[in-house]
Amino acid sequence: MSVGLVIVSHSAQLAAGVVELAAQMARDVVLVPAGGTDDGGIGTSLDKVMSALGQADGGDGVVVLTDLGSAVMTAESALEFMGNPEKIVLADAPLVEGAVAAAVAAQSGAALAVVQKAAEAALSPGPASAGQGASGVIPGAAPGAAAGGTGSTVRPDGAVTAVLTLINPIGLHARPAAALAGALGALDVDIDINGADGQSVFLLMALGAGQGTELHVTATGPDAQRAVDLVRAEVENGFGEL
């Protein structure tokens, strides 16, 4: 099982649409829409939210995403009625971006807190905000230093770094970004790729990194080496597109 998602919206169509979009990148995740009032109008329904929570909970927990004001209040009320269960959390996140990011993280098998964080980080700027084609070369991560047998370098401060070149024709577009962010989301790591948070599918896509782009990767945390190895393997494998 994986963490499930419930999408609460004032509009049944909007909730269903967000589920449709997020499901594209997360085929095995239970995504349940709870949109509109009981009689199909614009608004939110406690009954719909509570039954969606029941459907989405496969044991690993549920992350709830909401659209506007009273949807948040209805979702909070539903949790209060249910005695505020520990395994159901509300994500304070933009609905569409948050749902997709959370779905990708859930698909990768990430735990509840990581899925919640993925949603909430969906729009936040990366740690360095270096933006597209980040020119700032990370100290100690010069290309030469990365040419060793492992393809990565451990800096004196413990950070694992690597410089990798995208070889697949389309570069870091949606599917590779989703695969990468999803896999990294399951690891206990803080990872920066050209200034973007490597666990955020949107920030990776926003790099606009095409074929031939150098990726400067810096990872810290218990899974830092695994994370860099994973990025390296994916990049060198052309994300399975070659």
Binding site: D38, G43, T44, S70, E76, S77, F81
Partner: peptide, 18 residues
Amino acid sequence: LISKVGGAAGPLYGTAFL
């Protein structure tokens, strides 16, 4: 009230009564 009102008044009054 939380089920039927739809707008913000539903959860607000609903929470008050709850």
